[in-house]
């Protein structure tokens, strides 16, 4: 995963929000970017786990 510090999260927020049709109040934008950066840092920890193809998620759907 790319180092979160090198990503332009403000641009990511703008383009992704636009793609899913989410209008973000300009007053919230800086807070949203800061929160996404925090999530990205945590994602880096989780992405560091080296999984193999057989590491399946545990689903609970029971037909």
């Amino acid at each position: 995963m790319t180092d979160p510090a090198s990503v332009d999260w403000a641009a990511y927020v703008d383009s992704t929000a636009s793609a899913i049709g989410l209008a973000i109040d300009p007053a919230c934008r800086a807070g949203v970017v800061a929160n996404l950066e925090r999530i990205a840092q945590v994602a880096q920890v989780v992405n560091a786990v080296e999984l193999v193809d057989t590491d399946e998620a545990a689903g609970v759907f029971r037909p």
Binding site: C28, V32, R38, V46, V49, L51, D55, A57, A58
Partner: peptide, 27 residues
Amino acid sequence: IRDRMLAGVLAPAQWLWQAHRVRRYVR
């Protein structure tokens, strides 16, 4: 929580899927 919620819906799907797979790994 509003800004955290707005950020959460924008996260890449890969982050969530990785977290679910890591749950089994950690278990």
